[in-house]
Design a protein around this nucleic acid. Structure first.
Lengths: 193, 193
DNA sequence: TGCCGTATAGTCGGATCCGGCTAATAGGAC
DNA sequence: GTCCTATTAGCCGGATCCGACTATACGGCA
C-alpha cells in the first residue's frame, strides 16, 4: 500500500544497479563495495533487505527468480520494472536539482565550539585537519586505481572537493582562534574529560 | 538502562541549551529557532521529546519541576547534571576531532549523474546552482542581522563555506559537461519523466 | 460577542533503520 | 580427515525517528 515515499539513498543505489543487470541483494552489496561506492551509500545488510522490500512494495523492482545452491539460504534475484526505471531517473534528477537540507554532525559540533575554549577548540580542529588529510589521501588514491571513465567515479571527485573545502575552513579557523582574530567571549576554557 | 549511545545531534543542542539555563522542551525548540539554529539541527517536536527522554535515561539531564498554566498541558522543566555537562564537552570535542562518515543525498545522486545524459545533467546542475546561490544569500543575510559575537554564529560561517564550495563544483562540472571535458560514455541520454 | 488564525505544549502510531545473529559452504593448514 | 576461518546469504528484535494529530489559550477584528 505504497507507504511513505522512499527517501533512503541506498534504494537509489539498488535501483541503479538493477538497471544494469538482475541481481540478488547480497550480490548488490558486494558489487557496490567492489566499485568503491561505500563512501556514497551506507551499505548495511539489514537496511538493504528492508530497502528491497520497500522497492518491491512500490513496484519499482520485481522478483525475477528464486534459486538455491545446495542447502544455502535461498537467493531471490530482482530485476528492474519500467516504473522503477522512470522513477530512478526522476529521482536522480530531483536530487541534483533541489539541494536537500542536511544536518552533518560537524555542523552541530561547530555550533558549540565555544564549549571547548580557545585552546581546546584549536587543538581539536588541528586533529580533525589531520584526519581530513588522511581521508583525502585515501580517496585520491582510489581515483586512478581503476581504469574507468571519469563519469563513473565523478562522485569521488565531488567528495574530494568537499573534503578539501572542509579542510581549508578547519585550518583557517584554527589559525584565527590562535591569532585572536576570532574573539572568544567566554573567558575561561572548559577542558574535555 | 542506558540504551545505545545517543547519536542524534538534536540531543547535543538540548544539552547545550540546558547548560545555559533550565527550560522545558517547547521552550528549547523555540529558543533554537529564535537563534537560527534550524540550519544546524533538525528541530522536530516528535524527536525532541524522545531525545529528552533518552537524555534523562542517561542521567545527562534531570527534571527540575513540573508546572501548569491554567488548563494547558503540563510543562516539565529540565536542567543539566554534572554528568551531562562533562559529556556535552566530551561529545563536542569528539565530533570536532574525528570526522564522521556522512552520506549526503547529493553525493548519492552524483554517483548516478550518468543516468541524466549530458544535456539533462548539465541542466539539473545549473538549476541546483541557482538554488544554492539563493540559499547562500539567505544564509549570509542572517549573519550580520544579530549583533552577536562571531563565535556564537560560527557554524553559519562554516555552512556558508561549504555551500560556496558546493556551488563552485556544481558550476565547474556543468561547464565541463557542456564543453566536453567530461566525456560521456553512454551515448544516448535518458530524459526525466 | 462570536469567530478565526496563531502560539503554546506535548502525544502517538507507525515507518525506518541497523547491529548482531544464524547457518551453510569453501579453502587452507597441519 | 578435521579444525578453523572467511565468505556467502539473509533474518529479526528492538532502537530511533518523525509526521500528523490533539487541545487549550489568546489577540484582533467585524
Amino acid at each position: 500500500m505504497a507507504k511513505r515515499k522512499i527517501s533512503n539513498t541506498l534504494a537509489l543505489a539498488v535501483l541503479g544497479l538493477l538497471q544494469e543487470r538482475e541481481m540478488h541483494p547480497y550480490e548488490i552489496a558486494a558489487t557496490l563495495r567492489e566499485r568503491h561506492k561505500g563512501g556514497s551509500f551506507k551499505i548495511n545488510s539489514g537496511s538493504l533487505y528492508d530497502t528491497v522490500e520497500a522497492l518491491l512494495g512500490h513496484g519499482w523492482i520485481e522478483a525475477v527468480e528464486v534459486t538455491r545452491d545446495g542447502r544455502r539460504p535461498e537467493r531471490t534475484v530482482y530485476g528492474p520494472t519500467a516504473l522503477g526505471q522512470a522513477e530512478f531517473v526522476r529521482w536522480v534528477d530531483e536530487l541534483v536539482r533541489v539541494p536537500a537540507a542536511e544536518y552533518p554532525k560537524f555542523l552541530a559540533a561547530v555550533a558549540y565550539l565555544g564549549a571547548l575554549g580557545p585552546r581546546g577548540a584549536a587543538d581539536a580542529l588541528d586533529e580533525r585537519a589531520g584526519h581530513l588529510e588522511a581521508r583525502i589521501a585515501e580517496t585520491a588514491d582510489i581515483l586512478p586505481s581503476i581504469g574507468l571513465p571519469r563519469l563513473f567515479m565523478i562522485e569521488v571527485e565531488f567528495a574530494l572537493h568537499a573534503l578539501r573545502a572542509e579542510l581549508e575552513w578547519t585550518r583557517a579557523t584554527a589559525a584565527e582562534i590562535r591569532d585572536g582574530t576570532l574573539a572568544w567571549p567566554g573567558t575561561e576554557a572548559a577542558t574535555p574529560a
